[in-house]
Amino acid sequence: MNIFRLAGDMTHLASVLVLLLKIHTIKSCAGISLKTQELYAIVFATRYLDIFTDFISLYNTIMKLIFLGSSFSIVWYIRQHKIVRRSYDKDQDTFRYVFIVLPCIFLALIINEKFTFKEVMWTFSLYLEAVAILPQLVLLQRTRNIDNLTGQYVFLLGAYRALYILNWIYRYFTEPHYIHWIPWIAGIVQTLLYGDFFYYYFHSWKNNKKLQLPA
Protein backbone atom coordinates (compact mmCIF):
# COMPACT_ATOMS: atom_id res chain seq x y z
CA MET A 1 0.00 0.00 0.00
CA ASN A 2 1.42 3.34 -1.02
CA ILE A 3 0.77 6.74 0.54
CA PHE A 4 -1.47 7.91 -2.33
CA ARG A 5 -3.69 4.88 -2.02
CA LEU A 6 -3.98 5.22 1.76
CA ALA A 7 -4.67 8.95 1.56
CA GLY A 8 -7.21 8.27 -1.21
CA ASP A 9 -9.01 5.69 0.89
CA MET A 10 -9.00 8.01 3.88
CA THR A 11 -10.50 10.96 1.99
CA HIS A 12 -13.08 8.60 0.48
CA LEU A 13 -13.91 7.31 3.94
CA ALA A 14 -14.02 10.86 5.31
CA SER A 15 -16.41 11.98 2.57
CA VAL A 16 -18.93 9.27 3.42
CA LEU A 17 -18.56 9.53 7.20
CA VAL A 18 -18.69 13.34 7.24
CA LEU A 19 -21.91 13.18 5.28
CA LEU A 20 -23.43 10.51 7.51
CA LEU A 21 -22.41 12.23 10.76
CA LYS A 22 -23.67 15.61 9.62
CA ILE A 23 -27.02 14.22 8.52
CA HIS A 24 -27.23 12.45 11.87
CA THR A 25 -26.24 15.56 13.86
CA ILE A 26 -28.12 18.35 12.13
CA LYS A 27 -31.05 16.07 11.22
CA SER A 28 -31.11 17.50 7.73
CA CYS A 29 -30.14 16.33 4.26
CA ALA A 30 -30.84 19.62 2.47
CA GLY A 31 -28.79 19.89 -0.70
CA ILE A 32 -27.96 16.19 -0.80
CA SER A 33 -29.07 14.14 -3.79
CA LEU A 34 -30.73 10.92 -2.67
CA LYS A 35 -30.23 9.58 -6.18
CA THR A 36 -26.46 9.97 -5.99
CA GLN A 37 -26.45 8.33 -2.56
CA GLU A 38 -28.54 5.40 -3.80
CA LEU A 39 -26.25 4.98 -6.79
CA TYR A 40 -23.21 4.87 -4.46
CA ALA A 41 -24.93 2.23 -2.32
CA ILE A 42 -25.42 0.18 -5.51
CA VAL A 43 -21.78 0.81 -6.47
CA PHE A 44 -20.52 -0.66 -3.19
CA ALA A 45 -23.03 -3.53 -3.19
CA THR A 46 -22.07 -4.64 -6.71
CA ARG A 47 -18.32 -4.08 -6.29
CA TYR A 48 -17.86 -5.88 -2.99
CA LEU A 49 -19.48 -9.18 -3.97
CA ASP A 50 -16.10 -10.75 -3.22
CA ILE A 51 -16.22 -9.74 0.43
CA PHE A 52 -17.03 -13.26 1.60
CA THR A 53 -15.17 -15.18 -1.11
CA ASP A 54 -11.76 -13.50 -1.37
CA PHE A 55 -9.88 -12.43 1.71
CA ILE A 56 -7.34 -9.74 0.86
CA SER A 57 -6.57 -8.15 4.21
CA LEU A 58 -8.31 -7.16 7.40
CA TYR A 59 -7.99 -3.53 6.28
CA ASN A 60 -9.71 -4.35 3.00
CA THR A 61 -12.60 -6.25 4.61
CA ILE A 62 -13.21 -3.63 7.31
CA MET A 63 -13.17 -0.76 4.80
CA LYS A 64 -15.65 -2.61 2.58
CA LEU A 65 -17.98 -3.18 5.52
CA ILE A 66 -17.75 0.49 6.53
CA PHE A 67 -18.48 1.70 3.00
CA LEU A 68 -21.45 -0.65 2.67
CA GLY A 69 -22.81 0.19 6.12
CA SER A 70 -22.37 3.96 5.83
CA SER A 71 -23.73 4.28 2.29
CA PHE A 72 -26.87 2.28 3.10
CA SER A 73 -27.27 4.22 6.37
CA ILE A 74 -27.25 7.51 4.46
CA VAL A 75 -29.95 6.22 2.11
CA TRP A 76 -31.95 5.01 5.12
CA TYR A 77 -31.70 8.42 6.79
CA ILE A 78 -32.89 10.32 3.73
CA ARG A 79 -35.71 7.89 2.92
CA GLN A 80 -36.86 6.67 6.31
CA HIS A 81 -35.77 8.91 9.18
CA LYS A 82 -38.86 10.75 10.37
CA ILE A 83 -37.16 14.17 10.68
CA VAL A 84 -34.37 13.96 8.11
CA ARG A 85 -36.62 12.85 5.27
CA ARG A 86 -38.67 16.06 5.54
CA SER A 87 -35.62 18.10 4.49
CA TYR A 88 -35.19 16.10 1.29
CA ASP A 89 -36.26 18.16 -1.69
CA LYS A 90 -37.57 15.55 -4.06
CA ASP A 91 -38.73 18.07 -6.68
CA GLN A 92 -35.20 19.40 -7.22
CA ASP A 93 -33.54 15.97 -7.38
CA THR A 94 -34.90 15.04 -10.75
CA PHE A 95 -32.07 13.25 -12.57
CA ARG A 96 -33.44 10.04 -14.09
CA TYR A 97 -31.79 6.80 -12.94
CA VAL A 98 -32.27 5.09 -16.29
CA PHE A 99 -30.00 7.56 -18.07
CA ILE A 100 -27.20 6.53 -15.75
CA VAL A 101 -27.84 2.90 -14.92
CA LEU A 102 -28.81 1.51 -18.34
CA PRO A 103 -25.69 2.74 -20.20
CA CYS A 104 -23.53 1.36 -17.38
CA ILE A 105 -25.20 -2.07 -17.58
CA PHE A 106 -24.82 -2.05 -21.35
CA LEU A 107 -21.15 -1.01 -21.23
CA ALA A 108 -20.32 -3.54 -18.50
CA LEU A 109 -21.84 -6.34 -20.59
CA ILE A 110 -19.78 -5.51 -23.66
CA ILE A 111 -16.57 -4.04 -22.21
CA ASN A 112 -15.20 -6.16 -19.37
CA GLU A 113 -12.10 -8.15 -18.55
CA LYS A 114 -13.98 -11.42 -18.26
CA PHE A 115 -17.60 -12.36 -18.95
CA THR A 116 -18.51 -13.77 -15.56
CA PHE A 117 -21.22 -12.57 -13.17
CA LYS A 118 -18.81 -11.22 -10.57
CA GLU A 119 -16.56 -9.57 -13.13
CA VAL A 120 -19.44 -7.90 -15.01
CA MET A 121 -20.89 -6.63 -11.71
CA TRP A 122 -17.47 -5.29 -10.69
CA THR A 123 -17.07 -3.55 -14.04
CA PHE A 124 -20.61 -2.16 -13.79
CA SER A 125 -19.74 -0.70 -10.36
CA LEU A 126 -16.74 1.12 -11.85
CA TYR A 127 -18.77 2.65 -14.67
CA LEU A 128 -21.56 3.55 -12.27
CA GLU A 129 -19.20 5.17 -9.77
CA ALA A 130 -17.77 7.33 -12.55
CA VAL A 131 -21.13 8.99 -13.20
CA ALA A 132 -23.00 8.52 -9.89
CA ILE A 133 -22.17 12.10 -8.83
CA LEU A 134 -24.16 13.56 -11.76
CA PRO A 135 -27.50 13.90 -9.88
CA GLN A 136 -25.62 15.68 -7.09
CA LEU A 137 -23.90 18.06 -9.49
CA VAL A 138 -27.20 18.78 -11.25
CA LEU A 139 -28.79 19.48 -7.87
CA LEU A 140 -25.94 21.86 -7.00
CA GLN A 141 -26.33 23.68 -10.29
CA ARG A 142 -30.06 23.91 -9.81
CA THR A 143 -30.03 25.28 -6.28
CA ARG A 144 -27.09 27.48 -7.29
CA ASN A 145 -25.36 27.50 -3.99
CA ILE A 146 -23.39 25.08 -1.93
CA ASP A 147 -23.42 25.03 1.82
CA ASN A 148 -20.48 23.71 3.80
CA LEU A 149 -21.89 20.22 3.92
CA THR A 150 -22.20 19.55 0.22
CA GLY A 151 -19.10 21.61 -0.53
CA GLN A 152 -16.90 19.56 1.80
CA TYR A 153 -18.49 16.34 0.63
CA VAL A 154 -17.84 16.92 -3.06
CA PHE A 155 -14.38 18.29 -2.27
CA LEU A 156 -13.40 15.17 -0.31
CA LEU A 157 -14.73 12.92 -3.07
CA GLY A 158 -12.69 14.84 -5.62
CA ALA A 159 -9.55 14.54 -3.50
CA TYR A 160 -10.14 10.79 -3.27
CA ARG A 161 -10.34 10.53 -7.05
CA ALA A 162 -7.18 12.57 -7.64
CA LEU A 163 -5.22 10.53 -5.08
CA TYR A 164 -6.34 7.27 -6.66
CA ILE A 165 -4.96 8.38 -10.00
CA LEU A 166 -1.61 9.16 -8.34
CA ASN A 167 -1.81 5.71 -6.74
CA TRP A 168 -2.29 4.06 -10.15
CA ILE A 169 0.66 5.98 -11.61
CA TYR A 170 2.80 4.94 -8.65
CA ARG A 171 1.77 1.29 -8.91
CA TYR A 172 2.26 1.25 -12.66
CA PHE A 173 5.93 2.15 -12.20
CA THR A 174 6.59 0.06 -9.10
CA GLU A 175 4.61 -3.16 -9.64
CA PRO A 176 5.16 -5.54 -12.54
CA HIS A 177 2.17 -6.11 -14.83
CA TYR A 178 -0.01 -3.62 -13.04
CA ILE A 179 -2.30 -2.66 -15.91
CA HIS A 180 -6.02 -2.13 -15.41
CA TRP A 181 -7.46 -0.18 -18.29
CA ILE A 182 -11.10 -0.29 -17.21
CA PRO A 183 -10.73 1.22 -13.72
CA TRP A 184 -8.18 3.72 -15.03
CA ILE A 185 -10.37 5.07 -17.80
CA ALA A 186 -13.53 5.04 -15.64
CA GLY A 187 -11.55 6.74 -12.87
CA ILE A 188 -10.22 9.45 -15.17
CA VAL A 189 -13.73 10.16 -16.49
CA GLN A 190 -14.96 10.39 -12.90
CA THR A 191 -12.17 12.78 -11.94
CA LEU A 192 -12.84 14.99 -14.97
CA LEU A 193 -16.46 15.36 -13.87
CA TYR A 194 -15.16 16.92 -10.67
CA GLY A 195 -12.81 19.24 -12.52
CA ASP A 196 -15.61 21.55 -13.55
CA PHE A 197 -16.90 21.71 -10.01
CA PHE A 198 -13.45 22.37 -8.58
CA TYR A 199 -12.99 25.44 -10.70
CA TYR A 200 -16.00 27.07 -9.05
CA TYR A 201 -15.16 25.68 -5.64
CA PHE A 202 -11.68 27.27 -5.61
CA HIS A 203 -12.92 30.42 -7.25
CA SER A 204 -15.46 30.89 -4.49
CA TRP A 205 -12.93 29.94 -1.81
CA LYS A 206 -10.44 32.46 -3.18
CA ASN A 207 -13.02 35.21 -3.16
CA ASN A 208 -14.28 34.04 0.21
CA LYS A 209 -17.89 34.12 -0.82
CA LYS A 210 -20.73 31.72 -1.11
CA LEU A 211 -20.38 29.46 -4.07
CA GLN A 212 -22.57 30.29 -7.05
CA LEU A 213 -22.52 27.91 -9.95
CA PRO A 214 -23.43 29.27 -13.36
CA ALA A 215 -26.86 28.43 -14.68
Binding site: D9, N60, E113
Partner: peptide, 10 residues
Protein backbone atom coordinates in the same frame (compact mmCIF):
# COMPACT_ATOMS: atom_id res chain seq x y z
CA UNK B 1 -3.36 -18.57 -18.67
CA UNK B 2 -2.27 -17.01 -15.39
CA UNK B 3 -4.99 -16.10 -12.90
CA UNK B 4 -4.98 -12.35 -12.23
CA UNK B 5 -4.26 -11.35 -8.63
CA UNK B 6 -7.30 -10.55 -6.49
CA UNK B 7 -8.55 -6.97 -6.67
CA UNK B 8 -7.07 -5.19 -3.68
CA UNK B 9 -8.42 -1.70 -4.27
CA UNK B 10 -11.63 -0.29 -2.90
Amino acid sequence: EVEPPPKDEL
